[in-house]
């Protein structure tokens, strides 16, 4: 069995490592060793589901997930709804996971996005919770719940309209006391679909010639608003998400295939463009919204 070690801290800074390892794993069955996992955020949880799905689809067998030893982490995974999704992907000892759960302060549990009504459900669900979190933890105005919901709606629709494959979304607030000295909200959206290059290839690859690849496809969509649809009303979603994230001095990165592109503020040292990653299916979007200074 191929053993893949899950980083002890699994968040937007370490998910590429996990996804690359899953893509490059040998054909034999994989065991995801998460025993030493101490810290995980929505990006980490959704990436673990994505990595597990990649292994399952390539190897034709459910990978094994060795659960974290930390009961706090198990409990948190339970409250985030991780195990409901994980049981469709991994084989794991469900005795520990059955004890997980309890009262939840989760902003948005891991929610599968497969159809239009799932997006409505996400928007409905965050209404009652987001207002309080955005106002008290981030110091945003009361009306920001609308923009926050619009971001969630558009980013989830990206899965339905472009990936043509199911995906997940999750969000939670954290106190980044040491990292940033303030609260942040982390939103993660990932899918296993055809990615930006696949989505744009028929319509736009010719004009890029030899330069066409994951990085150019991401630049085309992220920076220039290109879309596979000829309709000029399309392609606004990501552009407008970027604009709103920038207004809040937040960070947004999108990985698709071998590349990752980002719009990063001064507090984040993520490079704006990375290429040469392992060819991961689908797209992986991370949005981090910091508290107002």
């Amino acid at each position: 069995m191929n053993v893949l070690s899950v980083p002890a801290s699994l968040d937007h800074q370490t998910v590429d490592e996990l996804l690359d390892s899953a893509v490059r794993a040998p054909e034999e069955r994989t065991m995801f060793d998460a025993r030493h996992l101490r810290w995980v955020d929505p990006n980490g949880m959704v990436a673990l589901l994505t990595a597990g799905s990649i292994a399952r689809d390539r190897q034709g067998v459910m990978p094994h997930l060795e659960l974290p030893e930390s009961s706090d982490v198990i409990g948190y995974l339970g409250r985030m709804g991780f195990f409901q999704e994980a049981e469709k992907i991994f084989e794991f000892d469900d005795r520990a996971s059955r004890r997980a759960g309890g009262p939840s302060d989760v902003l948005l549990e891991i929610t599968p996005i497969q159809a239009n009504h799932d997006v409505h459900e996400v928007v409905d669900r965050v209404q009652s919770r987001a207002g309080a979190v955005l106002a008290t933890k981030l110091g945003y105005p009361a009306s920001s719940v609308v923009q926050f919901s619009v971001i969630l709606s558009e980013v989830c629709q990206n899965i339905l309209e472009h990936a043509e494959s199911p995906g997940w979304v999750a969000a939670q607030a954290y106190n980044w006391a040491r990292r940033l000295g303030r609260f942040v909200v982390v939103i993660s959206v990932m899918d296993l679909g055809r990615g930006f290059r696949g989505s744009l290839m028929d319509e736009h690859s010719a004009r890029y010639g030899d330069r066409w690849g994951d990085a150019t496809a991401l630049e085309a969509a992220f920076l220039h608003g290109l879309t596979r649809f000829p309709d000029s009303g399309r392609g606004q979603g990501i552009q407008q998400i970027r604009r709103q994230v920038q207004r809040w001095n937040g960070a947004i990165t999108i990985r698709s295939g071998t590349a990752r592109i980002g719009q990063v503020p001064e507090w984040d040292d993520t490079p704006p463009l990375v290429d040469g990653l392992a060819p991961c299916p689908g797209s992986q979007i991370s949005i981090i919204l910091p508290a107002k200074v």
Partner: peptide, 14 residues
């Protein structure tokens, strides 16, 4: 058009 408790005008099909 959609079964919702709220009047949210979200998603292109809606």
């Amino acid at each position: 058009t959609v079964t919702s408790l709220y009047s949210h005008l979200v998603t292109r099909p809606t």
